[in-house]
Amino acid sequence: MSDKTLLHLNLIQLVYAYALILLSVSLARFRQIGQERQMLWASIRMVVQLLAVGYLLQLVFTVRSPLMVILILLTMTGFSLQVMGSRIKRRMPHFYRIMGSSIMIGCGGVTFYFCLLVVGYTPWYDPRYLIPLAGMIIGNSMNGASLAAERLTSEMRERHDELETALCLGATARQAAEPALRTAYRAALIPTMNTMAATGIVALPGMMTGQILSGTEPMLAVRYQIAIMCAITASVAITAFLILLQGYRGYFTQADQLRNTP
């Protein structure tokens, strides 16, 4: 790690940065949007949360205990579940069990594959790599995962007549649900595909920008970015796949009947 090129941000400089928030708040006040307090409050939350994470990471980096790292990863998963659960109004049967296991297998699997095979550092639990990479993978997969879950619920509802017709014609539950699953999977993958296609042109990814700012050579930063995009795509694909694979079952009984879902 070469810290030499890294420009330090001292407190005064941060205060200058925070002045930009105050500027935004006064603009909002001028237009009387009535949200100035919320804006200030949100900015304070941001500062406090980031500082807290910073201290936590610093602690974790010095302790370097695998147990602690795992605990942090689980907490991250828990938070992501809670966020998704609150964002989705109509949840499929067994929502938390299905989402939790899919994220753990999908995001977790890809994270470890990525850390061990692609980046290949030791020890495997080195928090300096594992935590930010896992965070990036989970954070970026959440959108795809909730899209899959949300779309499955609405498809199963809208396609009620189609599902029943298919069952009457001798389809298994799986066959009847196939069109709904296809639509939901497509919906889950589209944002990730769009992001991939737009990367570098419309948006410079945060990780790459951060690396470049902290002194990494652009080509190396780009390589990392390519690798992480691949990991995110795979993680979305696997997680959404697992959610749908388990999710549709809850709408049927063992006898290939549609269950009455509230």
Binding site: E164, T165, L167, C168, L169, G170, A171, T172, D256
Partner: peptide, 17 residues
């Protein structure tokens, strides 16, 4: 097995999907 039963017992639902 339900799919087999439903081949032997055909059904036309009230709503024609």
């Amino acid at each position: 097995p339900p799919p087999l039963l439903r081949q032997r017992v055909g059904m036309m639902l009230q709503k024609a999907f």
